[in-house]
Design a binder for these strands. Structure first.
Lengths: 236, 236
DNA sequence: CGCCCGTTTTGCGCTATCGCAAACTGTCCG
DNA sequence: CGGACAGTTTGCGATAGCGCAAAACGGGCG
C-alpha cells in the first residue's frame, strides 16, 4: 500500500483547514489505484465497497436504464470525489464509473467513512456542500431539458465541460479528454445524430473545430450567445 | 415564540436516535409559522434566512428561468425539510417555495445551522443522506426525460406523487393536494396541453378520475404498466 | 343566484428531432 | 502498408409533441 503524499490533496476545498497530521491520518486509510483508459472503476448496482477521489485523468459516471439506454450523469475532473454512495445512504453504486483516460484515484473503504466523519465532522459538512452543488447542477440540467432546444443544451454542455476540463489553446479551448458525439448526446438528452448535425453546423460557422472524440471551442463567446439565445429571437 | 412539542418531530428519520432533551434543545432554536394556501414562503434568489421543516400541508418548490419559464423541482410533504440552501453552501435560495395548501412549518434561522451541526454531528450525516436521496431522484428524472416519452413520464410523476402524498380511497388513490395540469407539465418537461390530452385519454379508459386541480388514480396497477411500457411494444 | 376568472379541453397545422440506413473517415493494429 | 473498426456524417421520411386559438367548464365570491 503506497504512502500518499498530503500535498496531492491539501489544496482541495474539501480538505481546506485540515492540519497536515489530520490529513495524514485521513490519507492513511486510503489506497491509490490506477485505471487505464476505458476500464471500469465500478458498476451500477454493485456493492459500494469504497469512495473515491480522482487525482489524475477523467472519469465518466453513467446511469443505465433497464432497457439499456444510458445517460452520462457527469464527468469527474481531478480533485473531485465520486462514488460517494454510502455517504448518501446507499449500499450500492447508483451509476457506473469508467475511466475515459488513464486515471489515478484514491480509494477509501466504505467502512472508513463513519470513523472519519466521527473524527472529522467537517468532512460531513464539506461533503454536504459538494453534494449540494451537484444537486443544483442536476436541477439546472432538468430546467434546461424542460425549456431549451437541443442546440442550446449542447452549447451549455460544452461550455460546462470547457470550464471544468478545458485546456487553453491559442486558437480556442479544447476539452481535455476523449469525448464522443454519443457522450454529448447522453449528457443532453438527444441522439448522436443530432449532436453530429449541430457540431457540423457550428464547424462551418467557425464556432468549433472537432474530430474523433475531440472538440475545440474556437469561439466560446459566440457559443455563449447561442446557449442563451431565446429560441424565437431573430431570423434563421 | 410558541414552544414546539418534540412529539411532532421525534419520529422523523432525521431525528432518529436523538434523546428528548437533545430534541428540545434543537427545537428551541426554531419557531413555527403558518402559511395560507398559495402564499409564498421564500423566493428564488432571496437571501437564505432560514431552513424549514414542513409539519402540515404541502409546499411546491419551483425554479424559474431568466425568461420566466418554470419547472417544479419537487413537492414537499409533511415531515420533509426544505430550504436547506445554507447547509449546501448557498447564501440564496435556488428556488421559490409556495404553500399549495394551508401549511405549518418550523423555521430555523440560518445562523443556527453551524451551531447545531457542531453540537449534533449526526445532523450533518442525516442531512447528507436526505440530500443524497434527492440527488438520486434528480438523476432518475433526468434519465426519464432523456429516454421516455411524455406519457410515461406523466405516469411516473403521478405514481410518485401518489406514493408520497396519496390518500387511499375505496375507489383509488387521490393526490392529497391541489395540483393543476400545468404543475404536472412543469414536473415532466411538457406543456399543460399535452398533459390534459393524456389525462383525458386515461379518464376514458378508466385509469384516472380527475377534475379541477384534483386527480384520483383509479387503477394504479395499469398506470404502472404504462409507466414501464417500452414505447415500441405492442400495437397502437 | 349569477357573474367572472382560472382551469381544462380540444382542434389543427407545424416543426424540431428522431430513427433508420448507408456512406465516409481517421486510427490503431497486425 | 492495408485492413478493420469505432466513430462520424448525412439524407430522408415519420411523428410526437408543441404552439396557437377558441370554446367549454366549474367554483367561488359579491
Amino acid at each position: 500500500m503506497a504512502k500518499v503524499d498530503t500535498s496531492l490533496v491539501a489544496h482541495l476545498p474539501l480538505f481546506a483547514g485540515f492540519k497536515t497530521e489530520d490529513l495524514e491520518e485521513i490519507l492513511r486509510e486510503a489506497r491509490s489505484a490506477r485505471y487505464p483508459k476505458n476500464s471500469a472503476i465500478f458498476e451500477q448496482g454493485a456493492d459500494a465497497h469504497g469512495f473515491f477521489l480522482l487525482l489524475h485523468g477523467h472519469v465518466r459516471a453513467a446511469k443505465t436504464t433497464p432497457t439499456g439506454e444510458q445517460i452520462v450523469v457527469r464527468y469527474v475532473a481531478p480533485g473531485e470525489t465520486f462514488g460517494l454512495a454510502m455517504a448518501l445512504g446507499l449500499t450500492q453504486y447508483p451509476a457506473t464509473a469508467t475511466a475515459v483516460d488513464d486515471s489515478v484515484v484514491l480509494i477509501w473503504p466504505t467502512a472508513a467513512w463513519p470513523r472519519l466523519v466521527e473524527r472529522f465532522p467537517s468532512l460531513a459538512s464539506g461533503t454536504l456542500q459538494t453534494v449540494g452543488a451537484r444537486l443544483q447542477e442536476s436541477h439546472t440540467r432538468i430546467l434546461e431539458m424542460s425549456t431549451q432546444q437541443v442546440e442550446q443544451r449542447v452549447a451549455h454542455a460544452l461550455l460546462r465541460l470547457a470550464k471544468q476540463s478545458g485546456k487553453k489553446l491559442d486558437h480556442g479551448i479544447e476539452i481535455d479528454f476523449p469525448i464522443s458525439r454519443q457522450d454529448i448526446a447522453q449528457m443532453t438528452g438527444t441522439t448522436l445524430h443530432t449532436v453530429s448535425r449541430i457540431l457540423s453546423g457550428w464547424e462551418q460557422q467557425g464556432l468549433v473545430e472537432s474530430g474523433r472524440q475531440r472538440i475545440i471551442l474556437r469561439d466560446p463567446h459566440r457559443i455563449v450567445t447561442l446557449a442563451e439565445r431565446n429560441p424565437d429571437s431573430g431570423p434563421a
